[in-house]
Design a protein around this nucleic acid. Structure first.
Lengths: 354, 354
DNA sequence: CTGAAAGCGCTTACAG
DNA sequence: CTGAAAGCGCTTACAG
């Protein structure tokens, strides 16, 4: 039994020897620093290419006196929803894995109901020295203002949860919203033969809520693509407190006895479940979004039938790791990474990794 | 804008200073090496504890002259199925991510239909110097013989794909088979009201195939737990060539006109789909396992309705990373990591990451 | 049982 | 524009 030595790889020393320069000069070329004559730069570069030189990242990080700094900007966990706890956990896991390599993460949070806090936080971030940003661009205009500034400063950034196309982001990691809605249509179409489907949007900002609108679009398009005798009804609930939701639902269900299934376009499906349970209505199929504790409780007791989820934890984890892999490992990243669309039921929920 | 320096953490030098010894002695204590008096060992250990010393893994790997070596042992990709391509891809991705840190992976493959090749490969592995093993313990007896030897040599190992309980493995990463079958029962129960369900086992070794047996058990148990008018029929097909499968199916379906759904307990669902398609039978629900190209093709054209998958790629990736995290990062790992049970349909298949 | 010194492959001032 | 030297925080012979 003999110990295997590490492969003998070429390093700066060998390059320097071949180019007849010092390793400091090689280092300058490697990092595109100024102060090297064009001639020696070219010579060194060609040697680097010939040797297929791969820098030793271990040594690089060890020798470097400065930490690499990433910042993340996501919504604060609120009383309304703890959805953002999952991405935050994912971010913290990634942080734990890479902090041994000299990486520091600064975390910024904003209030989803207050654009101003978003702007404030981006301004705070720009006061620090950053090597990369991971953000949920909930407010489109404000996000663009921020990413423009990042571009100016050559700070790379990655979007999670929702995308703003054509903003030169390194990557987008999150759901394909249209397809999520389309899948919901497919699922519901399977579950019964004839009757009505009630689509429910619950949000204070339905008309600006990219998430809801795209999902509804996808959902409707499914039924256009098939020949189905199902009819789609819809309610928009802009007052998001429970009494208001209850009022809307009871009126709707009283009027339309033939509603067989209810599709809620976001995580507020738990409020609908609460109503159905209170009303003793057990014969309706209920489909909604997100693996939140309250939703899971209703899934377990059979009030909710299916939840569609998109691994928010993994979005956070992957987002930060993508930053790390590009900035530190110089590995390529996918421009768009759509999360799988997961269907959660009573039976598989215990095995779901959010 | 000022550059943030790395945090000033205590290192071996500081410990040595406080203990009034050289850093070599500190290193000996850190690695439980012999040749240190009990007195100084204790002194140094208490200082390490006081300071909550965290070794710099970067420096450790860089200074170490020897590579860390892991071995993996999984089935060879065969003409019968390329299922193992996915775990292998995951392993290779993990390898790419960690090889910069001085880790070498040796890959061993065996023939799923030949125990002897499994034994041969484990013997080969034991001739080398190993720091950890990731294996699919397909043959139980032979696996136990091997892991016993690993225990003797203090080589840690992790199981993927199927578990052998109580074998002191560092971790198991893979499906909970019983629950997968149970979920299939739930899904099928949703999809139609009354009629018969046909359960199909296709394998040369049905009676020893842990995978199939446990899934069938879970599936049946679902129907015992509910009051359902569904009747379960079953065929075991031990001749796994297509003509044989076709023969069995056509006989069965001719006899039982009331079969509404077919549940195939493994990835051979594509053969059943092929038969249904050829026979022009489009009114049966078809549920099976695994995200393989042939299965996806039938899913896309509507012959297969649902596939249950358990991220084989991720099993490979996580398996190797778990080895890395315990052996290099000294981070804790979960004793059992059950993969989520994913339901794949026509609509979400494009977003599935195998 | 213990320590001084070299070295892992880089980066970073500093000097010229 | 370029190089010699120190240093990042460890591990590894080697000497005593």
């Amino acid at each position: 039994m003999k110990r295997v030595e590490k492969e003998e790889l070429v390093g700066v020393k060998e390059i320097a020897r071949r180019a007849n320069v010092s390793i400091a000069t090689v280092d300058r070329v490697l990092h595109n620093r100024t102060g090297v004559s064009e001639k020696t730069r070219e010579k060194i570069n060609s040697i680097i290419r010939d040797l297929d030189y791969q820098p030793n990242l271990l040594a690089r990080r060890l020798a470097s006196r400065k930490a690499i700094r990433f910042a993340i900007l996501i919504p604060r966990i609120s009383e309304e929803t703890n959805f953002w706890e999952a991405p935050l956990n994912g971010i913290e896991q990634a942080e734990a894995e890479i902090k041994a390599y000299g990486i520091r993460i600064d975390k910024y949070f904003f209030d989803q109901n207050d654009k101003h806090t978003f702007v404030q936080q981006t301004q705070q971030m720009l006061k620090t020295d950053l090597d990369g940003v991971l953000l949920a661009p909930s407010f489109i205009e404000e996000s663009i203002t921020f990413t423009r500034e990042c571009q100016k400063r050559h700070i790379p950034y990655i979007f999670i949860d929702s995308d703003i196309p054509n903003q030169e982001s390194l990557s987008y990691i999150g759901p394909d919203l249209y397809q999520s809605g389309y899948l919901a249509g497919h699922l519901i179409n399977y579950l019964f033969d004839t009757g009505q489907v009630l689509l429910v949007n619950i949000s204070r900002e339905i008309d600006q809520d990219h998430h809801l609108l795209r999902k509804e679009e996808g959902f409707r398009s499914y039924f256009q693509h098939i020949s189905s005798p199902k009819q789609i009804l819809k309610i928009d609930i802009r007052q998001t407190d429970y009494p208001s939701i209850k009022g809307h639902l009871s009126a709707m269900l009283a009027k339309h006895a033939d509603i067989k299934a209810i599709f809620v376009t976001n995580s507020r499906v738990s409020s609908v479940a609460q109503y159905l349970q209170e009303a003793g209505t057990t014969d309706k199929l209920l489909v909604g979004f997100d693996y939140l504790q309250e939703n899971i409780d209703y899934l377990k007791n059979g009030t909710i039938d299916f939840l569609i989820c998109q691994k928010p934890r993994e979005q956070g984890y992957r987002g930060l790791m993508a930053l790390y892999h590009t900035m530190v490992q110089h590995a390529p990243v996918e421009k768009q990474y759509f999360m799988p669309i997961d269907i959660i039921t009573k039976e598989n929920q215990a095995f779901y990794r959010n």
